[in-house]
C-alpha cells in the first residue's frame, strides 16, 4: 500500500469521525444530507459484499466494517435519534434517491468488468459513490451558512477522493497491468464534483472567514 492510498483512507476515516463527532456530541445534523448518507450506506453495502467471500487483509476488513457500521449508524441517528433528528433540514434536503440509484444500476448492467453479481454490484457502487455527494452539495448551496464541522466533513471527503487519484497514478507506474477504467473515470467524476466546493473552501481560508457559498 502506498502513502497516497493510506492518506486517502485515513482522510476518509477522519471525515466519518468529524461527522460522528458533530452528531454524537453536539447532537445536531444540521446541514447534513440524509439522502447522501443513505446513498453511502447503499454504496458500502453493495461494494463490501465481498467481506464474507474474499479476505484481503486485516486492515481491509477492519476499514470495511468501520465504513459499513458508521454509515448505517449515521442514517439511524438522523432518522431515529430523538434529539438529532429534530435538527435535520428535511424541507431543504429534497433530492430523490431513485434519480441517482436507478441510472447507476442501469449503467452498471451495461458497463462492468465482468458479468457477475459481484462485479456488477461493484461497478454500481462505484457509479453511485461518484454522485452520492450531490444531495449534500445541493443542501450546502441552499443552507449557504455552513458550520465548521459540516465544511470540514465535505472537505475531508473531497480530499480523500483526490488522494485516491494520486494513488492510482502511483499504482499505474509501479504495478504491472494496473488499469481500471471504471474505477478511474467514476473516481475522477466524483473528485471533479468537489471542484466548486474546494474553490470556496480555500477562499474562505485565505480570507480567514466563514465558509459561504454564493447564491
Amino acid at each position: 500500500m502506498n502513502i497516497f492510498r493510506l492518506a486517502g483512507d485515513l482522510t476518509h476515516l477522519a471525515s466519518v469521525l468529524v461527522l460522528l463527532l458533530k452528531i454524537h456530541t453536539i447532537k445536531s445534523c444540521a446541514g447534513i444530507s440524509l439522502k447522501t448518507q443513505e446513498l453511502y450506506a447503499i454504496v458500502f453495502a453493495t461494494r463490501y459484499l465481498d467481506l464474507f467471500t474474499t479476505y484481503i487483509s486485516l486492515y481491509n476488513t477492519l476499514m470495511k466494517l468501520i465504513f459499513l457500521g458508521s454509515s448505517f449508524s449515521i442514517v439511524w441517528y438522523i432518522r431515529k435519534h430523538k434529539i438529532v433528528r429534530r435538527s435535520y433540514d428535511k424541507d431543504q434536503d429534497t433530492f430523490r434517491h431513485y434519480f441517482i440509484v436507478l441510472p447507476c444500476f442501469v449503467l452498471a448492467l451495461i458497463i462492468h468488468e465482468k458479468f457477475t453479481v459481484r462485479e456488477v454490484l461493484w461497478a454500481f457502487s462505484l457509479y453511485l459513490e461518484a454522485v452520492a455527494i450531490l444531495p449534500q452539495l445541493v443542501l450546502l448551496q441552499r443552507t449557504r451558512n455552513i458550520d465548521n464541522l459540516t465544511g470540514q466533513y465535505v472537505f475531508l471527503l473531497g480530499a480523500y477522493r483526490a488522494l485516491y487519484i494520486l494513488n492510482w497514478i502511483y499504482r499505474y507506474f509501479t504495478e504491472p497491468h494496473f488499469v481500471h477504467w471504471i474505477t478511474w473515470i467514476s473516481g475522477l467524476v466524483q473528485t471533479l464534483l468537489y471542484a466548486d466546493f474546494f474553490y470556496y473552501y480555500f477562499q474562505s481560508m485565505k480570507n480567514n472567514g466563514k465558509l459561504q457559498l454564493p447564491a
Binding site: H12, I56, T183
Partner: peptide, 10 residues
C-alpha cells in the same frame, strides 16, 4: 488468477 477490479481498495 485474473482479478478484474482493484478489490484491494476501499
Amino acid at each position: 488468477d485474473y482479478e478484474p477490479v482493484a478489490h484491494d481498495e476501499l
